[in-house]
Each structure stands twice: as C-alpha cells, then as structure tokens.
Design a protein around this nucleic acid. Structure first.
Length: 552
RNA sequence: GCGCCGCUAGCUCAGCUGGAUAGAGCGUCUGACUACGGAUCAGAAGGUCGGGAGUUCGAAUCUUCCGCGGCGCGCCA
C-alpha cells in the first residue's frame, strides 16, 4: 500500500518536471510514513519539505504543484497539504477492508513475507555453560533469541537456531572436580570444598545420582574419576537445560559442541588459515590475532605461551565455521556483560573478508529479579541462584516470555515475581490473550445461534461503516510491516506493543458494539472483521512463543 | 583512566531510525451495559524528554561536553 503510494508520488513528481512546474529534476528518496495523528490521514510524505532547498521554493508551493498533478484516484478519498508542507493522504475505506479478505485467505500465513529472500541466517542464543541450571538472565536471552528467530522466519529468512555448548576447557574440569568432591563426601570422607568450585546444591544431586548409576566411580584413580564426573555432569546438566528450555517453549535445531571443534582439529586448521592470511603473529611465545586492524583496542591472544588455546581461539574457529556452513548472516545473542567481546569478534569477521553486518551481536541487558520490590538475587557465592525453571513454574511460561519481550533488550529489566503473580489478572499478557479468547467466545455463541463463520469473500464489507471498524482494519493491515520492521531491527518488543494496541482497540470495540446483532448481514461482516483480529492476534502471539487460548 | 548501555508522567516503559499537539500500562480520582465472557470499557489529573551547547525548515531522536546509574576493560571461561 505504501509502495503503491510512493510510486504514484514518483509519477506525479516526474510529471511536474515534464510540464516544468518544478525544475530541479532531482528525484529524492520519497518517504511515506504513517502519521501519529489520525487526523493527518493514513499516510503522509515530507517530500515537498525535502525538496524546498534544491527547488528554491516554499514547501507548500511544491506540495500544491504535486497535488495538482497527482489528480484524483478512486483509491484516494482525499489529499491535503498541511502544516509546514506535509502532503496527507486519506485512502478510501475499500482499500483497508480488502485486508480482511487477505487475512481470511492466508490465515496463519498472514504477516509472512518473502523480504528475506530465503537468506540463510543463524541465530545463536542461550549458549549457557553446561555447568549448572539456567538462571533468569539466560531466560531473557532465550525468549529474545527465539522470538527474533521466529520473526526473521516470518520475514522470509531461512533461520537456524543454535546452542553453542562450552563443553571444553576449565569450567568443565571444575564441574568434574566439584562433583568428585561431593561424591567423596557422600562416601563419608571429610573434604574441604574449594572457593572456586561450583557451590550449588545441584552438584550434590549430580554426585548422588552418579553414585547410584555408577557405584564404582569412587574407586577410580582421581584424574580418571574427575574425567568421568565431568562427562557425567555435562551430559546431565545439558539434559536439564534442554528440558527447562522445552518447558519454556524453545527447541534448537542444533546443539554445537565446542569440544567437537577440537575433536575435528578445527581450531588448528582455522587458526592456520588466519596465520596464512597474515592476520595472526607470534610474540613472546604466544600467537596473537591482529584485531586492532579492525578497530579493537588491543590484539588478542589465540594460543597462550604454554601452547594451549584460549577460549577466544575456539570461539574464532566456531565463527569461521559458521560461515563455512553457508550462513550469510550470523546473529549472536549475548549477555550485555560480554559487550567487550564484540569488537574482537567483529574483527575476526572483517578479517575474513565478510561485510561487518554479517555478524550481528544482540546484547541482552541484565534482569533484576525482585520480590515485592526488593532484590531477590540470592547470594551468588552459595550458588543457589534463582533458576529459570523456578520462575517459569511460579509465574507461567506465557507471562514469563511476554515479560521478557516487553522491553527493548538493551535496557535493564526489573522482574518482580510478586507483581507478576499478584497482578496476574492485570498482566498485559492476559489482556492480549483475553482478546483472543473473547473472539473465540463470540464464535461459540454464534455457532449456538446457528450463525456460521463467513468464508473468504462472503461478507458484505460495506456493512462496516463505523470509525472503529475502519480503525481496526487499518491496524490489521499494518501487521505485516510491523513484522518486517521487527525483523529488520531484531526488536521483538515491537510485536508486543502492536499486540497490546490491537487488543485495546478490539476490547474497546467489543464494549461499544455488539457483533451478533439482528441484521444477519451486519453480523456476518462483523464476524469477518473480528475473526481477522483473532487470526492476527494468534499469529503475533505465536511469533513470541506465547499461547493464544480459546478459553481462559 | 578508557569503552558499552541506560536516563521520557508518581512507578515501569514505548516513541516506527529527523517530522505535525511527546504516548501507553500500573497507581490516583470519576464513571459504564439485567446484551456476544467485567481478566472489559469511557473519562480526568499527571512532562523543562537528566543538564548545557551545536547541526536545520524541524531534535526525545543526530554531534559534542557534563552529571547520575549499570556493566565491561586477563596469555579466565
């Protein structure tokens, strides 16, 4: 619709040049936007103001010339010039009601576009170390990553969801040692648990289940036993994580093991490629990557002087491998506390000759867990932090996901458990879900009265004469561009705000007007409209991973 | 010290990449149908967009300086 208008304006502009009303001959980018104030019509362009300088004419004069040339169209109700030189367009209602046929025809597909042209995109998110259960911060990353992936899919990208498992290196060894000590403790031994071990109670649980499953581990040599403990712990914790994520409504297409990079010798091979390209060098017995060439403030060590690789080394190999797998675009969802790593990772991508936009890092700000307004983060030292599972069990998956997605991810989030529960009837998620359930309820009542839902194109839309009906149709028509915008900016919260607005408009309409009225034709038209709302609510909620219930 | 993020109504936050009179929810106050589900709706009050300077037809949005808060700056992962 916007594009169509843009074309029309372009034509009118060209015509103005042809008949010499305007002279510059330059066609600037034609911006068409939706004005904030509905009195300003459905669309507006600032073209006349932009051209004021090159044209050396008052914006309003230019606007008048354009409008005169534009002429009348059956699709345009009116065109006016307003304010400093805006041209406002009001479309004929027919244009907007067509969207209802579109929604009915496409159903769950409404809102999906081909904008991404099937480009291969990978979204890597969560990627928490397999050394303990997911906490609340991981939950936010999970909700955002999953929603971004869904939104990109809806915008026509070929998306893969991936979890990077840090199953190599120190933290895994620490996990093994921690379990080993707890295991010995279970066998009656006096131990002193080290500061840098994992303190959480889950370590004891792991030790206990390991003892039950393999009673003879305790008899092994220490080094050997710790290895077994590590492997056991990692696999067990990963199971927990996978289950918790599933409860949260998230499944991954791929779990990528860091260890597998070493097993396949990928780290050495990929690093050799970097050396070959002259991107790395040796100094003081260590191997460094020239990340400063690409804007980092310091070169970074890949191989330590003792010959062992840094975490960065495998991360570099991992990202090189991502592009080797054919992804044209790679999105990493990280906790904001890792923001310092963005420049060096970008440097790697740039060094490999990819455009800098090929890697996009979404930084998710911290979540402050509160209970009744008081900080509710238990001492990290005890290791008994609040897990994602705890929160999901307490407030529910839908409320939890909605809450995580309600704000831009780069601002911190206060998550008050009591508030989420106490206000559960006021919670925005229920407000939106209720709108959906309400339409379903209307449908049930209609069915009881023997009124069938109108099929595609079978409603007389001329019966929709009210302003709020037109407003609803307009809002529904804007759903696809909302999805596209959210995809472009990787901002799921835009969908949330869209949903809240749509639900509000619907609730208001519902309270003002009856859908099921005496006049059968009006009833059918309203049912058609209201079910358009239902479809869009369901589609949008689906992108966020929130259910659209038929009853509540 | 350097860097990243944030600062918008009493509180929590939007503001569509520079547009017209800065918006919502919660809270506060006043109201609503013997009707399709009151988990709803209508209305009111509430603002120096952290502060200063700059860029231009036009700034919450861009530049720059300052303030406050959070987080990072390892041959840790």
């Amino acid at each position: 619709m916007k594009d169509l208008l843009r074309q029309q304006i372009g034509k009118a502009l060209q015509a103005c040049f042809d008949n010499k009303t305007l002279h510059s001959g330059e066609i600037p980018e034609i911006q068409v936007e939706v004005p904030g104030n509905p009195e300003h019509g459905d669309f507006a362009t600032n073209l006349a103001m932009i051209m004021a300088r090159t044209e050396r004419k008052a914006p309003r004069q230019i606007a008048e010339a354009l409008v005169a040339t534009l002429g009348a169209s059956p699709l345009l109700d009116k065109v006016d010039i307003a304010g400093p030189g805006f041209i406002n367009f009001t479309l004929a209602p027919v244009c907007w009601y067509e969207v209802l046929d579109d929604i009915t025809a496409k159903g769950p597909e409404y809102g999906i576009s081909g904008a991404g042209q099937g480009q291969k995109v990978q979204v890597e998110f969560v990627s928490a170390n397999p050394t303990g259960p997911l906490h609340i911060g991981h939950g936010r990353g999970a909700a955002v990553g999953d929603a971004v992936a869904s939104i990109l899919q809806a915008a026509g990208f070929d998306v893969q969801r991936e979890y990077y498992v840090n199953d190599a290196g120190n933290q895994v060894a620490t996990l093994g040692r921690s379990i080993w000590l707890r295991l010995r403790e279970l066998h009656g031994e006096q131990i002193t648990f080290p500061e840098d071990g994992y303190q959480g109670d889950y370590i004891r649980k792991l030790a206990a289940s390991l003892r039950d499953e393999s009673p003879d581990v305790i008899k092994r040599e220490e080094a050997d036993a710790i290895k077994l403990c590590s492997a056991y712990g990692v696999s067990k914790v990963l199971e927990w994580i996978a289950v918790d994520l599933e409860t949260f409504g998230i499944t991954f297409d791929n779990w990528f093991s860091e260890q597998s990079l070493y097993d396949r010798d990928m780290v050495t091979t990929e690093l050799a490629k970097l050396a070959q390209k002259g991107l790395s060098y040796e100094q003081e017995d260590a191997i460094w990557l020239r990340t400063t060439d690409f804007g980092d403030d310091k070169d970074r060590v890949l191989i330590k002087s003792d010959g062992s690789p840094t975490y960065f080394a495998s991360d570099v190999a991992y990202h090189m491998e991502k592009f080797d797998r054919g992804f044209e675009r790679v999105i990493d969802v990280w906790g904001a506390d890792h923001h310092g790593y963005v420049p060096r990772m970008k440097a790697v991508v740039a060094g490999l000759g990819h455009p800098p936009e090929a890697l996009q890092v979404l930084l998710i700000q911290m979540v402050n867990l509160l209970r009744d307004g008081q900080p509710y983060t238990m001492g990290k030292r005890s290791g008994n932090f609040i897990t994602l599972r705890d929160v999901v069990d307490e407030v529910g998956k839908d409320a939890c996901r909605f809450f995580f997605l309600m704000r831009r991810s780069d601002s911190q989030l206060d998550f008050d458990l009591e508030l989420a529960k106490r206000q559960s009837n006021d919670n925005p998620v229920y407000y939106v879900q209720y709108a959906h359930a309400r339409v379903c309820s209307i449908n049930r009542t209609a069915a009881e009265q023997g009124v069938a839902l109108p099929g595609f194109g079978t409603a007389n839309l001329a019966c929709l004469t009210l302003v709020e009906e037109l407003a609803l149709a307009k809002h529904l028509a804007r759903y696809p561009e909302t999805v596209f915008g959210a995809a472009q900016s990787c901002e799921p919260h835009r969908i949330v705000y869209y949903l809240q607005e749509l639900a509000a408009q619907f609730h208001s309409y519902y309270n003002r007007q009856r859908v099921l009225v005496e006049d059968a034709e009006v009833t059918r038209a309203r049912l058609y409209l209201v079910n358009g709302v239902r479809t869009v609510l369901a589609n949008a909620l689906n992108l966020l991973g929130v259910d659209a219930p038929e009853r509540m």
